[in-house]
Design a protein around this nucleic acid. Structure first.
Lengths: 335, 335
DNA sequence: ACGCCGCGTTACAACGATGTAATAGTCATC
DNA sequence: GATGACTATTACATCGTTGTAACGCGGCGT
């Protein structure tokens, strides 16, 4: 059986509350008393019961992270940063996967888990504005990624601007037939897809390059297999293109695979760009030009907003954009 | 303020314990009473306080997953499965990253977090046998991946056999100068590295192929960049090889990148194989031959062991190997 | 009609930590 | 030497849930 404050108190010859005071360090305790207690703690290997503390304090010290698809390298790299930063700040992290099921996002936003976590970082995909009705009933939450929603805190890369920048980069290389992979369509219509498609179109318009809807390839799931299938279909249909801008690195990987298979040289015949700057993009064949952002800063910003929100639920919702850069590698500019 | 059993009880005109009985469903409650309670629960949107329940029951309903590096695609795919299976079984999942710091593994195994989680799935890297002394003091834990340790439950792919099989595959293609990337060395000596190196050597010995230590390339971190550097160094040194067996897909990615850069054709000039069968390997250029295993089954097996262990800490430790297969793709056998 | 049985329900206490208010102890001051 | 002003420590109650044991009520047998 584990030692409790009582046991420690008995051994140290003080009251339970004094033990608590020593442990939490807010109330001043005389050095010799403190030392006796600390000795007893060590002796008994006392560890506070966090359930009890949570019950008493109303705070669990845990936050939840919810991603749509944990198996993506993108999720992995974000998780890495979030877990590190959260731990540095003393939070423990609960992990949730929302998958393709919108009801899971709703469930998280309803009070289902409320008593187990102090706050929630949610990367929504299916969530549309409707899902969040009033802010009153929500647990403290920060949404990450592109969301068309004004009632809660949000952190994101400016997808419209980033897509515009990447398209501009491709245009500056002289490309005029730039396909995108991952555009929104009737069956697939997420906020990210819409934003990136919009940025692409804006860049074309700015450059006065005609917009061909046939170049907007829809991928109903942002995974390499779907992207590969989409590009293969387009090539087979004889669609002309001199560049492909994939809305994630993961899809770019699928596209590179298809082009490699067909012996189409990248970037000489078709340039390829991605979005997210995942680690493996650097080791793609050829290395992938992509939209990069500081994932550590992303996590820090998000958790800082969440922390504020937990402290004060009445704060006005904030939106923060994390700066992005175009990282140019050999998939668009040969060495 | 959240509703409690008390509030629900008052509204339904019953005692708190009856509400508890309805919610937990173990004690029979008369249908009309049950209905009244359920109505009150819905009315008040009552949600049990899990801290209180945890305090009372001594179980939190949460388990922890600890991986050395969450940013790896391998971790992501494992996490995906673990989280899914855990949720199906009603566990919530806490995430920990042990990083390069052995003390974090120790900390997890000590009772530090004990009161917050019911059990722990740990993928150790630094942990050597010494870290686990007696089983008495440990939280319920299942180790995953190669570990030289007999005191706790373990689930793993048989790395020795898998490496032997992959080496045999390469030998069967006629390769005789097979390099490995990720071998153990003086500065890098993990159980996985040792096991895979051993399997490689065993296969060579069985086939009567001479063993050249120069072909065993050490990577002090199993990431693509280090693998790339290692292979580049080997090629620059004029080391002859007709195949490269990388101990992870991630490293294979780095190797493919280096070979692509040098215009060395894969598999015609040098065949490349990996280990883990991560998703993106299918979309490598060329698609990667690798050691595959059922990650869902891995997670199910692990959580089943953990569940048993939580139920009975006195069980004899078990070791379970998850079956593996060699998946042959174009990086070793051209289409 | 009386007592017994069994089932559904209840009162109470306990899980462990900690805020509050009261207490014991220390020291300076007049 | 007694009074007052602090300061360190304590007793108690409480957070919300649930196991235990006791209770009340209806039905059955005699």
């Amino acid at each position: 059986m584990r030692a409790t404050v009582r046991d420690v108190a008995t051994l140290a010859g003080v009251s339970p509350k004094t033990v608590s005071n020593v442990i939490n360090g807010v109330v001043f305790v005389r050095p010799e008393t403190r030392e006796r207690v600390e000795l007893a703690v060590a002796e008994l290997q006392y560890v506070p019961n966090l359930s009890a503390r949570g019950l008493r304090n109303g705070r669990t010290g845990a936050i939840a992270l919810a991603f749509p698809d944990l198996s993506m390298e993108y999720s992995a790299e974000m998780l890495d940063q979030f877990v590190e930063v959260a731990h540095e700040q003393g939070w423990s992290v609960q992990l949730e996967q929302t998958g393709k099921r919108p009801e899971r996002e709703r469930e998280l936003l309803s009070r289902g888990r409320e008593h187990l976590i102090d706050g929630l970082v949610l990367n929504p995909v299916n969530l549309e504005s409707s899902a969040i009705v009033g802010t009153d009933d929500l647990p403290p939450v920060v949404l990450i990624g592109e969301v068309e929603q004004d009632l809660v805190d949000r952190v994101a890369v400016d997808s419209v601007a980033a897509a515009r920048d990447m398209t501009a980069h491709l245009l500056s290389l002289g490309h005029r037939r730039i396909a995108v992979v991952g555009a929104d369509g009737p069956d697939f219509d997420t906020a990210s897809a819409r934003a990136r498609t919009r940025g692409y179109r804006e860049a074309l318009a700015e450059a006065g390059v005609p917009h061909d809807p046939a170049l907007e390839l829809v991928a109903d799931d942002w995974v390499p297999g779907v992207a590969e299938a989409a590009i293969v279909r387009a090539l087979d249909a004889g669609l002309e293109m001199d560049a492909v801008f994939c809305f994630t690195d993961s899809m770019a990987n699928g596209v590179l695979s298809a082009l490699f298979e067909r012996r189409i040289r990248v970037p000489e015949q078709i340039a390829v760009a991605g979005f997210d700057d995942v680690h493996s993009g650097r080791f793609a064949s050829p290395p992938l030009t992509t939209v990069s952002f500081d994932k550590r800063a992303f996590a820090e910003t998000t958790l800082s907003l969440l922390s504020d929100r937990i402290a004060d639920r009445a704060l006005a919702p904030r939106r923060i954009y994390i700066p992005h850069q175009i990282v140019i590698r050999a998939s668009t500019v040969s060495a």
